[in-house]
Amino acid sequence: MKKSLMLACALVLAGLSGTASAGEAFVRGEIGKSDVKLKLDGVGSESDKDTAYALRGGYWFNSNFAVEGHYSRFYDQTLYNDGAGYVDGKLSAIGLGMVAKEHTTDSGLGFFVQLRAGVARGKISLDTSEGSGSETSTKPYYGIGAGYDFSRRFGLSLNYDHNQGSGGGLEITANTLSLGLEARF
C-alpha cells in the first residue's frame, strides 16, 4: 500500500515538473474604468466611476492554464473637501486565482478568450481630517476577456472583472473594464 502511494505521488510530481518546465512566467498590466457601487444597510446606496489599474503576474503551465497573483486599484478619489475638512477614499485588492485561455487556432497564437477566477482580499480605506481607517474582506472574484496573442511573448486583451467586498453593513462591488498588455518569458 505504501509503495503504491509513493509511486502515485512520484508520478504526479513528475507530471507536474514536466508541465512546469514547459510553461512560462508572465506579467500583465491593465488600465481601464471601474464602476464602484456601495450599499450601506439602513442608509442607501451610491455609485461612482474612476480610473482603475491592475498589475498581475503568474505562470502559464501550458497555453491554456495559468495561476496568477494580482494587485488592483479600483478607486482613489477625494469624496469631500470644504477647505476645513476632507474625506479621501481608496478601494484596492490583492488576489490569487486561476486563468483559462482558449485560442481560435491550434498554434496558440491569434485571437483568444479567457476566463479567470479566484479569491481577493479587498480593502477600503478612508483618510479624513479627523483620522483614518480601513476595512478588509476576502471574497471571490471573476473575469472574462478577449484578445490577441501577437507572438509567444506578447498579447493584448480587453477584460471585464467583477470584485466584491463586505463588512459592517457595507457591501461593495467594483466592475472594471480594462485594456491589458501581457508579456511572457
Rank of each mutant, 00 (worst) to 15 (best):
L109C: 01
H162W: 07
V119L: 07
L16M: 12
P140C: 03
N159M: 11
A52M: 10
I94N: 14
S132R: 00
A93T: 12
Y142T: 02
G23T: 05
M1Q: 15
A25I: 08
S4C: 08
D127F: 00
A20E: 01
T51H: 05
V36C: 06
G69R: 00
G131K: 06
V113M: 15
E24H: 10
G118V: 11
T104A: 13
G168N: 08
G155W: 07
V43A: 07
A52F: 07
G118H: 09
Y141R: 11
G155Q: 13
K139F: 02
F26L: 02
G23K: 00
I94D: 09
N64Q: 15
L5H: 01
G29R: 00
Y75D: 05
E182F: 03
G133P: 09
Y53R: 10
S134D: 08
S72A: 15
G57T: 06
L55G: 07
Q164W: 11
G44E: 00
Y86E: 01
V43W: 04
G89V: 06
L109H: 06
V12N: 08
L109Y: 03
T128K: 01
S137R: 15
S134C: 00
G89D: 07
L158Q: 04
Q77C: 01
R152M: 11
V12E: 12
S125N: 09
Y148P: 05
S21Y: 10
L79I: 03
R121W: 03
Y160F: 14
R121H: 05
G29N: 11
D76P: 01
E24V: 02
Y141F: 15
I124L: 13
V36F: 02
A117H: 01
T51L: 13
N62C: 04
T136G: 12
Y148T: 09
T104F: 10
G110Q: 13
G168R: 08
V99E: 08
E171R: 02
A183M: 15
M6K: 14
E135T: 09
Q114V: 05
G165A: 15
L179R: 00
G131Q: 06
L91F: 14
V67A: 13
T136S: 15
G83F: 05
E135Y: 03
S21P: 04
D35Y: 10
